[in-house]
Nucleic acid binder design. Structure first.
Length: 614
DNA sequence: TTAGGGTTAG
């Protein structure tokens, strides 16, 4: 009776076009005759196949329950099909129960389960299961390896990565298209781009996925020049592109701020008449905003028939990056009517309010979110609130918040407060904060520079000297600064005190000329930005060698009057260079758009859109 | 029956 009721429910649902009463009849028959067992197998198989096709989890569970109730012990094949069904429907725990209950398993059952964990980001469990599989004496095939490699980058040490690689070599799958792509992607994601490239170069054949994976390897490491070069090379040798390829490429073009290429790729996408993909549109929004063309971003955004939270976030970040706080707040309000904001949204809104100077609005939104608990609050959000408080000069309040927030403060948190102390020239809080930072990361030169800036601004020259000595005692290395400018599709990159540029002499001559002009207009170099123990004259020379000054000068030399000079920098812009750019904009009547690590600075008539807070 | 590359933020 119970079985019959269950059967009717299945039949009525009509999702599964299969009448369970047939099974019931055969079930009854099977207790009398042996051939019935085969019939039941085929019926269950057909039912599960129907459920897999439709991803009908409820019906699938009923079929499973029916097996249990009928005391039918599914053979390996059928149990594996059940695992696949549950995995496809995202019911991983059900799938795992089936796997654990199997008296025997084959490579497909293991692989299906590993793939389930892998695809839902449960990489540790995927790897654990892979190891269990090997220990159980089951040999991995190309499917298993292609799957398990996608779970490696995040959770494996270099040694383990090499172990997996040698397993791939041993099983002779290194040049298998799928396994090879996964392998090179794994190396790319673990930061070993040389090894990734080796695997790519050894592939006997290449397809869209393997090409995209290697380009993405460069892109993810911020090697945008290399990513673009490789794309051009592969594209001209006939590589086929799909939407993932373009999405990846756009990431690199965003990094380079290469509007020209960005537009070309956009054109290519339109010509290809690809179907609508949200991710691709999201990348376009981001690319245009990072290339300084917010209006283009907005046009893409407005034309989207469907948007994800990421689309909104990319747009919000865009406005924030350009310091347009009002738009951030307004767009956020519209967003909440359409999509549920996530934790990145909150980050975008808070940092947008901070960059746009909307202190009270930002703090209000934070309070609202904390109260309603719409999104998961993490330490990054606190970082933004500390920025907001710092910007408005409420340094003590910011310090109190750090001490009472439910997270351990990171260097980034203290760094944000130290920056605020520099702008508001607050020595007492600055010293407390700097001490914490110097304890946490004694090797970071940036902290010494800002502390020195604070002392210099307060006229405490003895302390400037002390900081300098302190820094000399610690060996300090940092990411080398570089700035670049794109003229006629050519990227001109400058490093500090550039020694290798072919037009070095011209640039040096021009920068000296510019220096005389801006000094005559009142520019005073900020020597506290140099912490080397050298005389003042040498310090001035070192400041003039900063990469962003070289790039701006190169722009002045090579662009006609009236055109905005667009310069990009990989780190935050330094105080002295920011001031220098302001004077250049005034003295030469030129707009300068400067994109640093955090935001855009639009310098015009001696003022900057960042309001001197960044 | 099982498989590879992708978007915002840090």
């Amino acid at each position: 009776m119970l079985v019959a009721r269950g059967l009717r429910r299945v039949a009525v649902s009509s999702l599964v076009r299969w009448d369970m009463s047939v099974v019931a009849a055969r079930h009854a028959a099977s207790s009398l005759a042996v051939p019935g067992a085969d019939a039941r197998f085929h019926d269950y198989d057909a039912a599960i196949t129907a459920c897999v096709e439709r991803q009908a989890l409820g019906e699938g569970r009923q079929v499973h329950a029916h097996m249990v109730k009928a005391r039918y012990r599914p053979p390996v094949y059928l149990a594996t099909r059940l695992i696949i069904l549950y995995v496809r429907c995202g019911a991983l725990d059900d799938a795992r129960n089936v796997l654990d209950g199997m008296p025997e398993r084959n490579v497909v059952s293991w692989t299906a389960m590993i793939s389930g964990y892998s695809q839902s980001g449960r990489h540790a469990e995927a790897l654990e299961l892979f190891i269990r599989m090997l220990r159980a004496g089951c040999k991995a095939n190309e499917f298993t390896l292609a799957t398990v490699l996608t779970s490696c980058p995040v959770h494996q040490s270099i040694q383990q990565v090499e172990q997996v690689h040698s397993l791939v070599v041993k099983t002779n799958f290194e040049s298998h298209m799928f396994v090879g792509s996964s392998l090179l992607d794994m190396y790319g994601k673990s930061g070993n781009i040389q090894e990734a490239r080796k695997v790519f170069d050894m592939l006997p054949e290449r397809d869209t996925v393997s090409c995209t994976a290697i380009i993405s390897g460069y892109a993810q490491l911020g090697l945008d020049d290399e990513a673009l070069d490789l794309f051009r090379q592969l594209y001209s040798s006939g590589m086929q592109c799909n939407y993932v390829t373009f999405t990846t490429l756009l990431t690199s073009l965003s990094g380079l701020a290469s509007l020209n290429y960005g537009k070309q790729v956009h054109g290519l996408i339109l010509r290809k008449e690809l179907p609508f993909f949200i991710v691709l549109q999201n990348s376009l929004i981001d690319m245009y905003s990072k290339c300084g063309k917010l209006l283009y971003s907005r046009r893409v955004f407005d034309n989207m028939p469907q948007r994800s939270a990421i689309s909104w976030n990319a747009m919000l970040m865009g406005y924030g990056r350009h310091g347009i706080g009002q738009e951030v707040v307004q767009l956020f309000r519209t967003m909440t009517e359409e999509v549920k904001p996530d934790s990145v949204t909150l980050l975008a809104v808070l940092s947008g309010c901070s960059h746009g100077g909307l202190v009270d609005e930002g703090l209000d939104i934070f309070d609202l979110i904390v109260k309603e608990q719409n999104a998961v609050i993490h330490i990054g959000h606190y970082g933004c609130v500390i920025d907001l408080l710092g910007r408005s000069g409420q340094l003590q309040k910011a310090l109190d918040l750090i001490e009472h927030m439910p997270f351990e403060p990171t260097p980034a948190i203290w760094g944000s407060l130290l920056g605020a102390c520099r702008v508001h020239i607050n020595v007492s809080v600055g010293e407390v904060v700097a001490q914490k930072l110097l304890d946490m990361e004694p090797g970071n030169a940036g902290n010494y520079v800002i502390l020195s800036n604070i002392y210099a601004a307060a006229g405490m020259w003895k302390d400037v000297f002390r900081v300098r000595k302190l820094m000399l005692e610690n060996t300090v290395t940092k990411e080398p600064a570089k700035s670049w400018i794109i003229l006629d599709k050519v990227i001109h990159t400058f490093h500090s005190s550039e020694r290798f540029h072919p037009r070095k002499k011209d640039i040096n001559a021009k920068i000296k000329e510019v220096y005389v002009d801006v000094k005559a207009a009142g520019f005073v170099p900020d020597l506290s930005c140099v912490l080397h123990d050298v005389d003042d004259e040498q310090k001035e020379r070192m400041l003039l060698g900063h990469s962003e000054k070289l790039a701006i000068t190169f722009g002045l030399m090579n662009t006609p009057p009236g055109l905005t000079i667009q310069v990009m920098k990989n780190l935050r812009i330094c105080v002295d260079c920011h001031n220098f750019a302001k004077f250049v904009s005034k003295v030469y009547g030129r707009e300068i758009s400067l994109r640093d690590k955090n935001r855009f600075h639009l310098l015009k008539d001696g003022a900057c859109t960042c309001g001197d807070y960044w």
